[in-house]
Design a protein around this nucleic acid. Structure first.
Lengths: 274, 274
DNA sequence: CTAATAGTGTCTATTAGACAGTATGTT
DNA sequence: AACATACTGTCTAATAGACACTATTAG
């Protein structure tokens, strides 16, 4: 029978924390940014892409595969502080938008030992980075196509290497919007990181509609055309100009600056209105 | 310098998993249901309340305080399976709606040792329970009031005991909807469970609007008035009848059954249309 | 009859979708 | 002049909010 203690001090002195077998905890960070691909036609504006940062693993397990930046949570570190520390090391930037995504804890997700991992999503404007990424890290442009059967094809492209995976969104409950992800094809990505990528993309899409989250990926000044392109690339569909402008009208503020030189009518630069 | 292995087998044989100090993982489950309070006036319909299940702690730490049901994640158990197992033990019901809420991992959240805890939200129709709760568990009706400064007063009432706490919602980022919770007053609830309760309430409110999640808390057959009351008690505001009926019109199906005996016009019973 | 809830009709205000039009830079 | 994008006007369709009205029961 369980002993009943008279005070908390007495209880804690006696407490044997090895009763349950312990495990390791990591965090994975899905960092989103926007990149521009230059057009050959001088008149066309640069095509925007969504991109994520990945690292090449240089040891087992999953040697030579790509994974999201991450690392172990220190025993004396708050969980939510771990991604901040890792981002600081990886990209040398503080003050990044970060939010917790989901905690993945399948028994077999790491062949070394039992590891549970909390994933985070970060949003940045890549241009503010001082290009000193660690040399095994690279930005991948991400394009996706979802068919009517909830099967999603993803292509990641870092300029040298194109990697693909296929994943199925499975509605977990008839009554809600929760999906779990079943990886159908994947050769190049480590751990369960394809699921993390999909979770983040879904979260980002949803939040675009009811928050101002997108401005974390934008430079200080931007044209409405650029902002619209970012929306379109995240949502995966074209938007109509007047509708878009109505929606974002009270989120942005016109400045006196203009962007010229595009071979077409110049546009005002806007900034985020808090 | 890190050794580079020739194969994954070789690497794993050599791997020392004690490199990082390990920790314990628990899950906490916030179980929502709806209860009815009988009215003295025979004509009035029962007043609906939102309620949650809590357990009284019979040992340190937090002896004699109330906490959410939960427990340690087994070293050989998938994270998402732990709340299923615990719910089965606690309420003897399978097949309950469950979703992961948030993972709390402050260093000092448990005085015994380092524990990180993933919280889950469960929704049930309390009337389907075979009233064999463990004897230290009780349902608490929950009422809340939020003022203009994002300070929320919560009262929990299990019939014998009324417990209160006060918590502040702090907007973590200007650009989004993420809050963290600062506990302002709390005498009776263990751990960081006030924050878990608030997270769940926020999640439930949001999902009410864009999913069919509410039907997990409803009996097979219900009147539209009852359904509307459940919406109202979760959202904390009155809804207009015609607007409500338009919104749920294509989620429900009229049956041939009616509810009579209320001293007023009888109403049709509806069921969830999948 | 009365109190109480059930259920509907309809007007108005707001928002979303669609399309066409005008404006203005660079080469 | 031609192209490409910037930006606006306006019609229509769909949705949300508000209020008033009718219906039907137990006591």
């Amino acid at each position: 029978m369980e002993k009943v203690y008279k005070s908390e001090e007495e209880f804690l002195k006696d407490y044997d924390s090895s009763m349950y077998e312990k495990l390791s905890m990591t965090v994975d960070i899905l960092i989103f940014s926007i990149s521009s691909e230059e057009e050959s036609n001088y008149r066309k504006t640069d095509k925007k892409k969504m991109s994520i940062l990945m690292c090449k693993r240089d040891n087992y397990p999953f040697k030579d595969k790509w994974c999201l930046p991450g690392g172990f949570v220190d025993i004396k570190e708050n969980l939510d502080d771990a991604p901040i520390r890792i981002l600081k090391n990886e990209t040398n930037i503080d003050n990044i938008y970060l939010e917790q995504l989901y905690t993945f804890g399948s028994v077999d997700r790491d062949p070394r030992m039992r590891v549970i991992s909390t994933s985070y999503m970060a949003l940045i404007d890549k241009n503010r980075l001082n290009n000193n990424l660690s040399k095994n890290a690279a930005w991948f442009d991400i394009t996706f196509y979802e068919d009517k059967n909830n099967i999603i094809d993803i292509v990641l492209d870092n300029g040298n290497e194109k990697i693909k995976f296929k994943i199925e969104k499975i509605l977990r409950e008839k009554t809600t919007d929760r999906y779990s992800f079943k990886i159908l094809e994947n050769k190049d990505i480590a751990f369960d990181h394809p699921s993390v990528i999909l979770s983040g993309m879904e979260r980002l899409k949803n939040k675009l509609e009811y928050t101002d989250i997108v401005f974390n990926m934008m430079p200080e000044l931007f044209t409405l055309g650029e902002l619209q392109q970012v929306y379109e690339v995240i949502l995966g569909k074209k938007l109509l100009d007047p509708a878009f402008r109505r929606i974002i009208a009270n989120k942005v503020e016109k400045t006196k600056f203009m962007k010229t030189g595009g071979g077409h009518r110049p546009s005002y630069l806007f900034k985020y209105k808090k």
